[in-house]
Amino acid sequence: MKVLVVIPARYASTRYPGKPLVELRGATGEARSLIQRSWDAAQGVTGVDRVAVATDDDRIKSAAEAFGAEVVMTSADCQNGTERCAEALDKLGGGYDIVVNLQGDAPLTPAWFIEDLVAGLSAHPVAEVATPVLRCDGRALNGLLNDRRQGRVGGTTAVFGADHNALFFSKEVIPYTGQEFDDADETPVFHHVGVYAYRPSALAAYPRWASGPLEHLEGLEQLRFLERGAHMLCVEVEARGRQFWELNNPQDVPKIEAMLAEMGHF
């Protein structure tokens, strides 16, 4: 089985322009860009045959090539990371069984999240796409709720059926609980980890589909698959004591730096 990891990155983020080049400091105080830390995360994954950064911006290209990344230049017309991954796969050629989209704003993604994701998709031949979900403890859930109270879009949450087939994803905190949780409590809310594993056929079909109303309203690319009836598998992953957070807003920088320091990452 051949696995390709693509890290899509664009400069013109609506919420945080220039986000891939934002520098993050870790345990030693050394600063590395967000895109480099995402690249570093991909290098730690076993069973991967190739890793490439996909971008439409020369600044990101130059920065990525400077730390040794392979870069694929893609169109500025790509509407999201999945479309960018589809174009990157087309340019890199076929021969891959699974394509992983490791979004460039998730440098805290542990290697086992991606390894479990690939294993999950491999074990479910009916599934066309797979994505990880992480059960929130009280600390993580309270962080999500606090972001919404402050008018910020933080992490995405997921709900799925008994067969782990995805039902919906939202930037709101779903399902509603109406309870208070202490930091260490287990909660019924699942944080969607912004990583995807695709069958190449599903990835190739995606750009041909028009964006539907749910994708438009939520601003979540994976909803295009659900609106088209695609089978998306939610793979539950374990934190193993690690905190996970994506860089969505400038306010997330100190939070992620603190988590990097806690992990002992450079």
Rank of each mutant, 00 (worst) to 15 (best):
E238K: 14
V3K: 01
R242Y: 02
N142R: 15
V99Y: 03
P200I: 11
G18P: 06
N165T: 14
L108H: 03
D90A: 14
A64S: 15
G151D: 09
R37G: 04
P107M: 07
K91F: 01
H231W: 12
D40Q: 11
P200K: 10
T109R: 05
R59N: 01
L102D: 08
R50C: 07
L214H: 08
L117C: 08
A202E: 01
L217R: 15
A64I: 06
S38T: 15
A106L: 11
A119C: 00
Q222G: 03
E115D: 07
L233Y: 05
A258H: 01
L223K: 02
M259I: 15
Y16S: 01
Q103N: 13
F168S: 10
P8I: 06
G219E: 03
I60L: 05
F225N: 03
L34R: 00
E257M: 05
F160V: 07
A106K: 06
T46P: 00
V173I: 15
P250I: 13
E172H: 11
L102V: 03
A88F: 05
A86Y: 00
G241N: 07
L214E: 12
Y198Q: 05
A106F: 08
G138T: 12
T82D: 02
K2C: 05
L233M: 10
V48C: 05
T46C: 10
G47Y: 02
G151N: 08
L121G: 06
P110F: 02
D57T: 13
E186T: 15
A210R: 11
S62N: 00
L24R: 08
G94V: 09
P254N: 09
V129P: 01
F169Y: 13
T14E: 09
F67E: 05
P200V: 13
T82Y: 01
G219R: 08
G161C: 00
G143N: 13
F266D: 15
L24K: 06
G44C: 06
N101F: 11
I60Y: 05
